[in-house]
Design a protein around this nucleic acid. Sequence first.
DNA 1: ACCTGAACACCGTTCAAGT
DNA 2: ACCTGAACACCGTTCAAGT
Lengths: 214, 214
Amino acid sequence: MARSADPVLAERRRRQILDAAMACFRRRGFHQTSMQEICAEAHLSAGALYRYFASKAEIISAIAEDDWRGREPLFEAIERGPDVVAAVCALAEHALETCGGDGSLVAEVIAESIRDPEMSQRFADHDAIFRRRLTLALAAAQRRGLAKLAITPDHAAGIVMLMLDGLVLRAAGFGAARARPLLKDFRVAVEHLFVPAPPPPRRAVKLVAAEIDS
Amino acid sequence: MARSADPVLAERRRRQILDAAMACFRRRGFHQTSMQEICAEAHLSAGALYRYFASKAEIISAIAEDDWRGREPLFEAIERGPDVVAAVCALAEHALETCGGDGSLVAEVIAESIRDPEMSQRFADHDAIFRRRLTLALAAAQRRGLAKLAITPDHAAGIVMLMLDGLVLRAAGFGAARARPLLKDFRVAVEHLFVPAPPPPRRAVKLVAAEIDS
DNA sequence: ACCTGAACACCGTTCAAGT
DNA sequence: ACCTGAACACCGTTCAAGT
């Protein structure tokens, strides 16, 4: 928003406000936190804050944007790492960690994105990107012989994403501690979708089919 | 809340308020709807409304309770129906329908349950019941020979629930239309978890393993 | 240019007063 | 017993006035 003459100050103020907001939201949740509280935490007046963020929703949105960064390494691990199953599970663990802590921010971001159409669109876009990226990573792993998929990479990506949402939703709603056991379910599912290429057998086995009358 | 001398009137008023609230929430979302609007829609004053519901959250909670009823038939279809895969997919379709329509109530319920600790606890309880019930249904289907599970019924239940949440979250956030394609992913996953017992083969096949030097 | 903080238009909830 | 609606204690946001 703010047309600023001093971009350095502007950036400093934005971080100052974002950090204050995150602290407040973590303590009391998005809607329980008043702008006055954020102002107090950031040592700024209401008027000053509105120079840098047009609304409370815009603050939440900026926090979500922060969260979406730095997920690329996880995809690269799927593409190139030695253990695809482990790398996909790392995606789930990362999701759980991000949602970790009880007064989680992610819960607030989800809640807000469900309500606010603009945030929702932003989420849908990110969702599509995420799926494409995951599909590509899985297909790459498959081509390199790192994984034998029981189904197409695209379906696998879709299923993994559905389950990730399940984890995130529970972590957000019930706390990371209650969601953690579900990682086991996640892993079991992944293991059945990604039939890992068996290690080169020390003894080959030949299967012979013989017809018998029934 | 309301200690009422006339339980018939009380019940009528509760329905009246709930119906008005649902109409308002569907139109404008939970937090965008003011109590004044609900009062107007229900043709009651604010004071009267608060005789029957202690807070806005309690109204949302009552709506969720309504939603949780009548899911039992779906479990029974899993237990007893001829096609377990189809019955499990019906669970997903039901979830999508419930979340259907754009200004969905479910989105509001999710958002609120994430925020409000009491609602969250209620959700966690229902979640545990749901998992037990689904596990039982799957185990029963398995015992009756209707399904051969690739994994334990409990894991299968957990995975199905994770994916259901994924569907619900997207339906709530992006609209049922954008979530519907994911049903295909869901089905593919279910088909791989529930290896259906193959139809009695017209010709039996005997597998013979013969060791060979590698 | 940047900031302040009182003022504005709301909100959910309560409670004295009516019938 | 049941209901009304003005009043209360807030809220997010704005904007005239300061430096």
